[in-house]
Simulated assay, not measured.
Amino acid sequence: MPTGNGLRERKKRETRVALSLATIRLCVERGWDHVTIEDIAAAADVSVRTFRNYFSNKAEAIAAAHVERTLRIADEIRASPSGEPLWESIVEAVQANFAPDDSTGVEFRRWRDGVSLMLAEPALQGEVLKANAATQDELARAIAERAGTDLAHDVYPKLVAAVIGAGSAVAIEHCLRAERPTPLDQVLREVFDRLAAGLPVPSDLGVHRDH
């Protein structure tokens, strides 16, 4: 049974996530400039004071979802079967936490367009960078534990953690900029398959360069 402190921390984490998701949904639906802290608090069914207890602004609230997602990825990498190849565990964890259920329909296209506009906000870009820095060490620790290596002396866990962040960002940007709706789970799989293979130069790219 959870202890009092454990239950309290779980409730706080759930509130943070609820506020973050409400902020994302409203900013995607209405546009960045048309969402207030009051709107977010009402959507999450909390007071404005409660929002301010967790976040100082909308950008910080949105970035919190990225922090939570990365922490879940780290937890799932730790919990993956010991006999499963590390990169397979990474791909499964990333896909489970990044890819939406429907990435081809009309609703996804609306979501994609709204997210693209939201991510263009300079304030949010700064908070996402902070979120990446805040979660890199935890992700590296999870990889070190899973790979059975020493984080203090081996560069590999930190390198893989950085690659996970970069690969995920590339996949998301590719899908957001694609002319046609592109399933994020497929792009994530391609990105990490190529990374796991050592990023070989595609054969067709070599042909184009020769010409």
Rank of each mutant, 00 (worst) to 15 (best):
A59C: 09
T50Y: 13
I62V: 15
I77V: 14
A96W: 02
I90Q: 03
V91K: 15
I62G: 00
R112S: 14
R69L: 14
A93F: 04
R110E: 11
E121T: 08
V91R: 15
V48W: 02
S82T: 15
A140K: 05
I143C: 08
V48E: 11
Y156K: 13
A134N: 06
T149C: 14
L139N: 03
N53H: 14
A61R: 05
E107K: 08
T104L: 12
E88V: 11
N53F: 10
A152T: 14
D45P: 03
R72G: 07
N53A: 12
T104V: 10
D101G: 14
A133R: 12
A133Q: 09
A96C: 04
A131P: 03
E107I: 08
F98V: 13
R49E: 13
Q136D: 08
L71R: 09
R141Y: 00
V94R: 04
D154M: 13
A61Y: 09
A147K: 13
I77E: 02
L117V: 02
V67Y: 02
R78L: 05
R78Q: 07
H153S: 15
Y54F: 14
Y54N: 10
A44E: 02
V106P: 03
S80H: 01
Q95R: 15
R141W: 00
D45W: 04
H66G: 08
A93P: 08
N132E: 15
R112A: 15
P100T: 15
M118F: 07
T149V: 15
D113R: 04
Q136Y: 04
V48D: 09
S56K: 11
A65C: 07
T104G: 07
Y156V: 15
S56R: 13
D45I: 02
H153N: 14
N97R: 14
P157Y: 07
T135G: 04
L71C: 00
G114D: 04
S47T: 14
F51Y: 07
G105R: 04
S82E: 12
A63H: 02
T70E: 07
A120M: 06
V128R: 12
A79Y: 00
Q136V: 10
R146I: 01
S80W: 02
K130I: 08
F55H: 07
M118K: 03
M118P: 01
L151Y: 07
E60M: 06
L119Q: 10
